[in-house]
């Protein structure tokens, strides 16, 4: 123990040539953090990962990557995020600086300008568009289960076409069609994944989507937008 006092602090001399990257899993009371954490850890594999579950502005600003999970209604998720002092602003700053960002399910929907679930609610406005109910005709809602995801434009994030797990009744209508990187169809074609500059989102749950989801998360962790 005494010797340790004279040693250099390990942080100054990391044992690996590249410092392990830190992902901030934004914890605002509206996501399945366990699964998202485990999914990211698995996707990182041997290269490892430091995951911080927090909504503290400092944790958000200092992370190498940001992940915003989300389940429930657009409005309650947005309220949950607003209730964390400084979180929304810190996300805005980090994104403006180029930090890679991934929203999952409602976390992706929050990227929109506004959501129409229950009553109109303002979103984060990071990708222009709005969130509205799926038009499914006589099909059942929620759209729940495994469905095909098809790449719609070349993207380093989207793996080879396969099934992913969806649970939602609303979808993200982007203003600019080129922000959609993958689509799915249920009654109508809708955005399964979106990306604009360093901001991305998945309507499906990559952390629940078996090997396809793992590939998607691994792509995100290696993504240099």
């Amino acid at each position: 123990m005494r010797r340790a006092l004279f040693c250099c602090p390990p942080a100054l001399f990391p044992p690996f040539p590249h410092a392990m990257q830190t992902v901030c899993l934004i914890d605002y009371g509206a996501g399945n953090l366990h699964s998202a954490r485990r999914g990211l850890e698995r996707a990182a594999g041997v290269s490892g990962l430091r995951i911080v579950a927090s909504a503290e502005p400092e944790a958000i600003r200092s992370a190498d990557r940001l992940v915003l999970p989300g389940v429930g209604a657009f409005r309650s998720c947005m309220e949950g995020l607003r209730a964390r002092p400084g979180a929304k602003e810190a996300i805005g700053e980090a994104v403006a600086r180029g930090t890679p960002f991934l929203g999952i399910c409602v976390g992706m929907q929050l990227l929109a300008d506004r959501g129409l679930e229950h009553e109109e609610t303002q979103g984060l406005g990071l990708i222009p568009g709005m969130v509205r109910e799926l038009k499914v005709g006589s099909l059942r809602l929620p759209h729940m289960g495994w469905n095909d995801v098809a790449s719609s434009r070349p993207s380093p994030l989207v793996p080879k076409n396969n099934d992913a797990y969806f649970v939602h009744s609303f979808c993200f209508d982007t203003e600019d069609e080129s922000d959609v990187i993958a689509t799915c169809a249920y009654g109508e074609q809708f955005a399964a994944a979106v990306q604009r500059e360093n901001v991305a989102g998945a309507q499906f749950h990559p952390e629940k989507s078996g090997p396809y989801g793992m590939a998607f998360l691994a792509n995100f962790l290696g993504w240099r937008p």
Partner: peptide, 8 residues
Amino acid sequence: MTLKTRII
């Protein structure tokens, strides 16, 4: 593209 029947 089809929603699959789930086996649980």
